[in-house]
């Protein structure tokens, strides 16, 4: 059999034999299973993935009946980012009516709760207008972005400056202070957009990018919002396969957050009142897409099996088996989407 055309994690084209692809699939699945202490892929699942790469169709899709929901983060920046001058409302309508999006998301171009706080009184009329004109459920979305609460962008001393000096306790305190500021902003923005402007829910995007203290802040904010508004939809999208322990000891409901893999992350999200959870598995650019996809499937499947709430895996630039490129190739994106949905019993992407 001839070689199979696929890609590396950086998007470059590569030709591999079926045996090489199988080897990558098996090695990656095993590696992920050992890291997260979860089951590896079965022989049937490996065969499924191998067949997916053998298939020469440029674009593939899920089987009839396995369709799932498609949510987008930072929706009102996506089209603008392509330098198409278009208003937020127009973008939402374009996604809803033109592109068939299942959910909508209003967002500020600087996608951080801290920055949204300053413009919340301008975002509320946008949401009020959007809910009158659209039909699909609508989030207000943003990132916790804990780094913005430390110097030079915020009031707290920067742990990045203290750690190299061995000031460990001081850095932990700084992370805790940053988390408190972030919780306040997330609850404030979430409350304003939900209670006063009519959003269906809030999306915490790229959660825990700044480590365990950021995960704590997002969980706590979700918990407070859920207590205030039991019907509020809360989506939490993650940023990496395990929680980076930058603080290292911070806990939520008695569970240490550092080092948690998706199957444990989702359980805490459920406790906090999150209604949709999005695991995010980053790509290794030096490995093949089969390697990356198998790895992402192992983590995501374990998460989906552990979950009671819907799982919307993150798939896009550099996550979920999609290459780290500004323009994700459809051959890669459609294969990653199909495999995640069908093998992980996903609720959405």
């Amino acid at each position: 059999m001839g070689k199979i055309l696929t890609r590396m994690g950086d998007g470059s084209r590569v030709e591999m034999t079926a045996a090489e692809i199988q080897q990558d699939l098996e090695a990656a699945a095993q590696d992920a299973a050992e890291r997260a202490n979860v089951p590896s892929l079965t022989d049937d699942e490996i065969k499924y993935l191998l067949d997916l790469y053998k298939c020469k169709d440029r674009v593939v899709g899920v089987e009839e009946g396995k369709e799932c929901c498609l949510t987008y983060d930072n929706m009102t920046s996506k089209i603008k980012r392509a330098h198409i001058p278009i208003s937020k409302i127009q973008q939402l309508l374009l996604f809803e009516r033109g592109l068939g999006a299942d959910t909508l998301e209003l967002a500020h171009i600087d996608y951080s709760f801290k920055q949204c706080k300053h413009v919340v009184q301008y975002e509320k009329p946008n949401m009020e207008q959007a809910v009158l004109q659209t039909i699909a459920p609508i989030f207000y979305g943003s990132m916790p972005n804990l780094g913005l609460y430390s110097v030079p962008d915020g009031p707290v001393a920067n742990p990045g400056d203290m750690l190299p000096l061995g000031k460990i306790e001081e850095s932990k305190e700084a992370f805790e202070q940053m988390a408190e500021y972030a919780i306040k902003d997330m609850v404030y923005v979430g409350s304003e957009l939900y209670e006063k402007a009519g959003a269906d829910g809030i999306n915490f995007d790229t959660t825990a990018a700044a480590g365990d203290a950021e995960f704590y802040a997002a969980l706590k904010a979700a918990e407070i919002l859920h207590d205030k508004y039991p019907d509020m939809g809360i989506e939490m999208g993650m940023s990496g396969e395990f929680i980076l322990g930058l603080h290292s000891e911070i806990e939520y409901n008695g569970v240490r957050l550092a080092g948690l893999y998706p199957q444990d992350q989702v359980k805490l999200a459920e406790q906090a009142g999150v209604t949709i959870f999005g695991p995010a598995i980053n790509i290794g650019t030096n490995e093949s897409l089969p390697w990356n996809l198998a790895r992402s499937i192992v983590f995501t499947k374990a998460c989906s099996e552990a979950a009671e709430i819907p799982i919307h895996a993150n798939l896009g630039m550099g996550v979920g088996g999609v290459p780290l490129t500004l323009t994700p190739p459809l051959d890669a994106l459609s294969r990653a989407s199909k495999a995640h949905v069908e093998l992980c019993r996903l609720d959405g992407l």
Binding site: R7, G11, R13, R81, P323
Partner: peptide
Amino acid sequence: SELTDPVIMTEVREDLQIGALTP
């Protein structure tokens, strides 16, 4: 074959300054 590859073409278009999707 590279003409339809968005990864290659994003880079080529940027290098040649002939317009990119997300400039």
